[in-house]
């Protein structure tokens, strides 16, 4: 009893304006604590791990080794190969998924019977559990009974003995293809909403003005969708850069940075190296996103 009255007494003696400020801090404190615990702490800990060698024995604490992990990475071809794979995979799948999404959205921007159903079906690749579709694709790409190699062979485009997922050269385009197929509905969804906000009369005015389909695409659709397209590219870029499961579940013959980090940390138990790769991944991404924002201008987004 006496302590509560004491605290109450002390609170009442604080200057009212200061009391207001303190209350403000008190109110945001839970969010700050939560963000600190689930975001800042793991991030900082990962940064710390990157400078250490983590012993397998949980009783021993990590040994500080300075920049050794980073030096090893920068000197290794495996790291740079993985980086190139990541960049090619990210840029390829981001641009293609956006382009395909835009194309399909334009096709769907009209009224026809069964439009709602068709639109739902287009979303299927994006919402089906990835484990199921990854295995379906593996099956389709199988050199023995897969229908895709079969089709390609029939067209005379493919005659290798090696399966399409077996070598890095072919696994990379296949991974991009799979990822585009899985993620174009996301871009589609963003674009179709925006397209439907363009009044029909604007196309009609352009038709009267003598603008053909191509001119209408260039002068109406693209400018109207510019902001949405830039956002779609940014979001997909960030997600693809960190993407793990679309590549890992489809093929083990393509190593991107997230996969390299995973293998280092959990297959070879070099947690320090894994953490260092993750930090490099984060840095690359930071530079690229900053460059992108610079390039398109913040106002456009």
């Amino acid at each position: 009893m006496s302590t509560t009255t004491l605290v109450k007494d002390r609170i009442e003696h604080i200057d009212p304006r200061r009391r207001e400020t303190l209350l403000g801090y008190l109110l945001v404190l839970p969010s700050v604590l939560l963000i600190g615990a689930v975001i800042i702490y793991p991030l900082a800990y990962n940064l710390y791990l990157g400078f250490t060698e983590v012993p397998l024995n949980p009783d021993q604490s990590p040994t500080w080794i300075g920049f050794q992990n980073y030096e090893a990475l920068i000197g290794s071809t495996r790291f740079w190969d993985a980086t190139i794979n990541t960049v090619v995979f990210t840029v390829g799948s981001t641009l293609l998924a956006t382009a395909v999404g835009l194309g399909v959205a334009i096709l769907f921007d009209r009224t026809f019977r069964g439009r709602r159903l068709a639109r739902g079906l287009v979303l299927l690749p994006h919402v089906t559990p990835i484990i199921a579709v990854a295995f379906a694709w593996q099956f389709m790409l199988d050199p023995l009974w897969g229908n895709l190699p079969d089709l390609l062979a029939w067209l005379g485009l493919y005659e290798s003995e090696v399966g399409l997922l077996q070598s890095r050269e072919q696994a990379l385009p296949m991974a991009i293809l799979f990822d585009v197929w899985r993620n174009f509905p996301f871009a589609f969804l963003l674009f179709i909403a925006r397209l439907q906000a363009i009044p029909q009369s604007m196309y009609e005015a352009a038709t009267i003005d003598g603008a053909g389909r191509v001119a209408q695409f260039k002068d109406i659709i693209l400018p109207e969708l510019k902001g949405t397209i830039l956002i779609a590219i940014l979001l997909r870029f960030v997600w693809e850069f960190n993407a793990f499961e679309p590549v890992w579940l489809l093929t083990r013959n393509l190593e991107t940075l997230p996969i390299y980090a995973y293998k280092s940390a959990f297959s070879t138990y070099d947690q320090g190296l894994g953490a260092a790769i993750a930090v490099m991944l984060f840095l690359f991404q930071l530079v690229m996103v900053a460059g992108y924002m610079r390039f398109v201008g913040e106002d456009e987004l």
Partner: peptide
Amino acid sequence: QSPSERSIAMVFQNYALYRTMNVRENIGYG
């Protein structure tokens, strides 16, 4: 004939101006 082949011009109820162009470009587009 298509609309652009006929010598007509039309003003729409909601104006249907091209929102991403300025006034000069709107008038000059046709």
